[in-house]
Amino acid sequence: MRKREFLKFLLDNSVWIIIVVFFTLNAFLTPKFFTLLNFRNILIHSSILGIVVIGESLCLLSGHFDLSVESTLALSAVLGSMAVKNGLSIPLAIGIMLMSGMLVGFANGTLIRKLGLNAFVATLITYIGIRGTALGIVEGKTIWNLPAAFCFFGAGNIGILPVQIVLLAVLYLLFHAVLIYTKFGRHVYLVGDNQLAARISGINVDRVVITVFMLSGLLSAFAGLVMAGRLNSASPLFGTGMVFEAMSAAIIGGISLRGGIGSLFMALGGVVLLSSISNVLNLHAVSPYWIQTIRALMILFAVTLDSLKRRLVRYEE
């Protein structure tokens, strides 16, 4: 029994344990890896994906996919940059960006709950449609040279810390607390675990799901602001393929695609692990094309651990 519980503890925290092992190994094997500057790089590299993963994780925990995150990110970046280029104030531009994200989320949630579409189909529609809208608005062109104040979230510093890293930490702490300590957070998990039971028990499933998608849109739009700031530009092709990275990170972190299982803290582990792996490949000058293969192996490994964990807790005669 003791051994079983210990094993469960290891499996529950597998991502962070793998990260510790990975960092220790590379401290010896990879030159320049174990330096503060490089850790800073890894975290900066994690920030945009990390913010998107919060939203994706909320959706997955409630038992839904959100494919539209990357398109929302691009639309937000394009809209915000257009706004500041056309002389709107920066707070107003940021307001427009965040609103656009929440609107996409609201559309997703409504398509799913009120029209009864499958989450995959609903967000596939917005995934394609919103990317198309972003491309259409600027006719596929990239907007360059944004005001410095607009770039604060993606390129600024607070003291010695880059704003991106601070944002990553603050947002994870905030949303982790929301999920673990509030009634809303508990309902997100319950809806993901057994939607029917949640409904019978009086949980307003429509409201929970629509809110979750709106938060996901909001966070993706915010990630668009960070990306535009970091690159001092806005392209309608921002974040292409990012939804798969976001899902990989969440799954590697142990969030179940069936909903109701996993934690945001572990999803962050998934993000950091993915970033560290590409960082190491970079430092070894390995062709970045191999990263996909390695990511696939990581996912395979993660789901194997997951099924092992399920078997450990399940009741057996």
Partner: peptide, 19 residues
């Protein structure tokens, strides 16, 4: 058991919707 959330603990299930 169909009215229970399988991966939540007993207390969370007993208070489901009325936390």
């Amino acid at each position: 058991e169909e009215i229970l959330a399988p991966h939540h603990d007993v207390a969370a299930n007993i208070f489901m919707g009325e936390e």
